[in-house]
Design a protein around this nucleic acid. Structure first.
Lengths: 212, 212
DNA sequence: TTCACGATACCACTTTAGAGGTATCAGCCA
DNA sequence: TGGCTGATACCTCTAAAGTGGTATCGTGAA
């Protein structure tokens, strides 16, 4: 019996997956948490063979939880679970050391296979994203290109959020209690880091990446 | 026993929800489809008491399915199921006649209550969005404000797409073989129609609405 | 057949964004 | 300690966006 911890902010999804596995499937979701920050304390209390983790979550995202685990020396194989069939997410995941990647539109059979493999510390990639993985491994050996988002500071993400709401530099300066010059400097740095030409591209990029 | 049809492109979620309901819950997911276009033919084959429908789906979105059902005179109560705690989605849903709205981070108990109510043709709104609903009903009795997106012409949507790619007015003019002046006029009209202040807000609004 | 509307185009003007710099200061890590 | 980085701030200048108009032309609906 493979004991799994499920980390997902969507209660329905979590409970659904839990009740999907019957005893003879060889898999049991022993615990569900909707807050990734709880993962370390849960791992200290109960023993699990692998973690099924959603990538996009409000308090701390899946990649954040992976990093948190790493920093605490917790070494449990992780299968990332997400809706985003998006190379940008997959890159971030691979770079932080997830064991596998599966889409939420996978079937039960695929999920079962993925959980089994990951619990044995084998890699699993959902067929739909395999090609993207190969492309990734072939091209771009340059890690600096991969996780553009991680290069952003919290302040910069905050600024992006304001821009997305339609605020101009002056308005942002007022709510953040900083100078308009500073806001403009931040905007410039952000655009340079993300490699975008203008505000429009910045916003569409940021929304795709999930920064907003 | 309430017989429900589930429309969701995420197989795992669907199978999860299906196996979550035991016979004594009084609810049975009798059919799952990942393609909303199949709903009319399914309804002609099997009888269901209500439909559980995801809003954001690739081929045809939840609102599209509702409209499709309406056009075919199919009258089955629909509970919309989504991750978006976003008034913009809720408006579209209500305007096309959904019976209820529940978030994917709801609990099983909440989902059960929602399904029961909707199957009896009562309205259900997830507690988290109740306040938003009330605000909506209080203000804005003006239906023309609701579906801003529909007011956009195809040309205007095309322009929005270009802006989202980071193109400026000049570049857009070149690829569309029109004058830069014309592009600027379109931008102005678009922003006026959508009620946004600047490009940043235009893009974030458009991406939320799914125009891009 | 008017009439409304979308697509097109132009002018003049103000505001904002964007790009080129430079610089200080606090915190963190080797 | 010394270097790196993020947050802050300022200056200058150009390019672009945004705002105020007006106007023609075709198409499809009333």
């Amino acid at each position: 019996m493979i004991r799994a911890l499920l980390v997902d902010d969507h209660q329905l999804f979590g409970e659904g997956v839990r009740s999907m596995f019957k005893p003879n499937d060889g898999i049991e979701i022993v615990k569900i948490t909707t807050n990734g920050n709880n993962v370390p304390s849960i791992l200290s209390e109960i023993e699990v063979d692998m973690i099924l983790m959603d990538i996009s979550m409000p308090l701390i995202d899946g990649v954040g939880v992976l990093e948190l685990m790493k920093s605490k020396g917790l070494d449990v194989p992780v299968l990332m679970l997400t809706m985003h069939q998006d190379m940008k997410y997959i890159r971030r995941t691979l770079e932080t050391g997830a064991q596998g990647y599966i889409l939420k539109d996978a079937s039960k059979a695929e999920l079962t296979e993925a959980i089994e493999k990951v619990s044995r510390r084998e890699n699993y990639f959902h067929p739909k994203i395999n090609n993207q993985i190969f492309d990734y491994l072939r091209g771009n050996k340059n890690p600096s290109e991969g996780n553009l988002v991680d290069q952003l500071s919290d302040r910069e993400k905050e600024i992006i959020g304001c821009i997305g709401k339609g605020m101009n530099s002056k308005a942002i300066a007022e709510v953040l209690f900083i100078s308009e010059h500073t806001v403009k400097t931040h905007r410039r740095n952000i655009m340079h880091k993300l490699g975008v030409k203008n505000t429009a591209e910045l916003i569409s990029f940021s929304m795709e990446k999930g920064i907003i």
